[in-house]
């Protein structure tokens, strides 16, 4: 399976996205996938989407921008609420 490209998006690009990154890393490990995880600021999204080769966006902050790949609500990784469901969503998206 090709290397997956995952973008974790938050306001600053380092604080809350780190919590998202941590969980995504665990999923990648469990699924034995090869992946590149990038932490980006929401302001950088335009550049990221234009790359056109992202497999998954984990959003720590919502965006109205049209994304060219599926996205999940990463705030579940901070609140813990709905976390299992988001993990399942991610697994499904990455399995494709």
């Amino acid at each position: 399976m090709a290397k997956k490209r995952i973008v974790v998006v938050c306001g600053a690009g380092f604080a809350t996205s780190t919590a998202g990154e941590d969980e995504v890393k665990k999923i990648i490990k469990e699924m034995k996938l090869e992946a590149e995880i990038m932490k980006k600021r929401v302001a950088e999204l335009k550049t990221v989407t234009s790359m056109g080769n992202v497999d998954l966006f984990v959003l720590m902050t919502p965006t109205t921008m049209k994304l060219d790949a599926p996205s999940v609500n990463g705030v579940a990784f901070i609140s813990g609420v709905g976390k299992k469901e988001v993990i399942e969503q991610i697994k499904k998206i990455l399995a494709e």
């Binding site: 938050c10 306001g11 929401v42 902050t61 705030v75 901070i78 609140s79 813990g80 609420v81």
Partner: peptide, 12 residues
């Protein structure tokens, strides 16, 4: 920043 990117977390 809180105005632009609020940080309330609905944790239980």
């Amino acid at each position: 920043r809180e105005e632009d990117f609020p940080t309330g977390i609905p944790s239980e």
